[in-house]
C-alpha cells in the first residue's frame, strides 16, 4: 500500500513538472512569436491558461502536502495531542462535507459548459474545467481517508508545519 502511494505521488509530481514546463515553454513560444516572428500566435495564451488552471487543481489534489498549504497553525501546534486530534477531525469532516455538498451542482455547472467552446482552441469548456471536479473528488477522498487514520492512529507526528510553501 505504502509503495503504491509513493509511486502514485512520484507520478503526480512528474505530471505537475510537465505542466510547469509546458506553461514555461508555451509562454516563451508566445514571446518568440510576438517579438521575433512579429506574428503572434493566438493559441499560446489559452494553452498557458489551461496549464495554469490544471497545475493549480491537479497540484492541489495530488502534490500539495498538508505542510505545503498556506495555513495558520499556531493554535494547532500549541495544544496537546488530544485536542489536536479533535481539531484535525473537525477540519477533515468540514472539508469533506462541504465539498461533497457542492459536488453534484458543481458537476452540473461544468457539464452545462459542454455547449461553450474555448476562444481559440475550440475545446469545450467542460473538458478544461473538469479538473475542478477531479480536484473535489480527490480532496473528499483524502479527507475521508484522513478521518479514518485519525480514528485509528490519532494525529501523526507532524514536524513544525508552518514553513509552508507560502511564496510571496
Amino acid at each position: 500500500m505504502g509503495a503504491i502511494f509513493h509511486w502514485l505521488r512520484k507520478g503526480a509530481e512528474a505530471i505537475s513538472a510537465l505542466m510547469m514546463f509546458g506553461l514555461f515553454a508555451t509562454f516563451l513560444l508566445q514571446i518568440y512569436s510576438r517579438y521575433v516572428m512579429d506574428a503572434p500566435f493566438g493559441w499560446t495564451l489559452e494553452l498557458c491558461l489551461i496549464f495554469w488552471l490544471w497545475m493549480v487543481f491537479f497540484g492541489g489534489a495530488f502534490i500539495v502536502r498538508e505542510r505545503d498549504h498556506i495555513r495558520f497553525d499556531i493554535l494547532y501546534m500549541a495544544v496537546p495531542r488530544g485536542p489536536r486530534r479533535v481539531m484535525a477531525l473537525i477540519s477533515a469532516l468540514a472539508i469533506a462535507a462541504a465539498f461533497l455538498w457542492s459536488l453534484e451542482p458543481t458537476w452540473g455547472w461544468i457539464d452545462f459548459l459542454k455547449i461553450k467552446k474555448s476562444a481559440t482552441l475550440r475545446v469545450p469548456m467542460r473538458d478544461i474545467y473538469s479538473i475542478y471536479a477531479i480536484f473535489l473528488v480527490a480532496v473528499i477522498a483524502a479527507q475521508l481517508w484522513r478521518i479514518v487514520t485519525l480514528f485509528k492512529h490519532g494525529v501523526e507526528d507532524e514536524a513544525s508545519a508552518s514553513t509552508a510553501g507560502a511564496d510571496q
Binding site: F57, G59, I63, V64
Partner: peptide, 20 residues
C-alpha cells in the same frame, strides 16, 4: 531542473488555491 519544476509547481498550486 526537474526538481526545480516540481518544487515550483507545489507552491504555485498552493498559492493558486488561496487566490481561488
Amino acid at each position: 531542473f526537474y526538481n526545480i519544476l516540481v518544487e515550483s509547481a507545489r507552491p504555485s498550486a498552493s498559492v493558486g488555491l488561496v487566490i481561488g
